[in-house]
Simulated assay, not measured.
Amino acid sequence: MNTRDKILGCALRLFNENGVAQVSLRTIAADMEISLGNLTYHFKKREEIIEALYFELVSKLDHVINAEAVVENPLESLFDMPSATISNFYEYRFLMLDFVYITRNHEVIRNHYQKLMEVREQQFEGMINGLIEAKLIREETIADEYKYLFKNLRIVSDFWLSAACIDKNSTISQIDIPEGSRLLRQMIFPYLTTEGRSVFFDRYTV
Rank of each mutant, 00 (worst) to 15 (best):
T40Y: 11
A134D: 13
A29H: 03
F55D: 09
Y90N: 00
L36I: 06
F124S: 01
G126F: 10
E47D: 15
Q122F: 12
A21D: 14
V70W: 08
N18I: 00
V23H: 07
E121T: 04
I137G: 07
T103D: 08
V58D: 15
M96I: 06
N105K: 08
L75N: 05
A69D: 11
E51L: 10
A21I: 09
I102M: 10
S83F: 15
Y90K: 00
L95Q: 04
L149V: 01
M32I: 01
F124L: 02
E33H: 12
E56I: 03
G126I: 01
Y90W: 06
L12S: 06
S35M: 03
V70E: 13
G37W: 08
M81L: 12
S83K: 08
P82F: 09
L95D: 06
Y113H: 11
V70L: 09
L149Y: 03
S35Q: 04
L39M: 10
H63F: 14
S59G: 14
E118N: 08
N16P: 12
K135E: 15
H42Y: 15
I86S: 03
I65G: 07
L12P: 03
R104V: 01
S87V: 00
V20Y: 15
I34A: 04
V100S: 11
S35P: 04
Y92C: 02
V119C: 10
M96Y: 06
S24F: 12
A84P: 02
E17C: 07
M96K: 01
R110C: 13
Y54A: 11
I128S: 08
A134C: 06
Y101D: 13
G9I: 00
A21T: 07
G37Y: 09
Y146V: 00
Y146E: 00
F94S: 02
G37I: 01
K135D: 15
A29I: 01
S35A: 08
L116H: 13
Y54D: 07
N111G: 05
M117L: 15
K135Y: 12
I102S: 06
Q114L: 13
L95M: 05
E145W: 02
S87G: 07
A67Y: 11
F124C: 03
Q22T: 05
F55S: 04
A143C: 03
E121P: 04
A134F: 07
I50K: 08
L131W: 05
V108L: 14
E47N: 14
P82V: 01
R46F: 15
Y54H: 12
E68W: 02
H63Y: 11
L75S: 06
L97C: 04
F124Y: 10
A52S: 15
V70K: 09
Y146T: 00
S24C: 08
A11T: 02
D31S: 13
E47C: 10
V20Q: 11
K44W: 10
F89V: 00
L149S: 02
I65L: 12
T103L: 15
A69W: 05
M96S: 12
I50A: 13
E72L: 10
K44L: 13
L61N: 09
K45S: 13
T103N: 15
N129S: 13
A11G: 08
A30C: 02
L39K: 02
T40E: 13
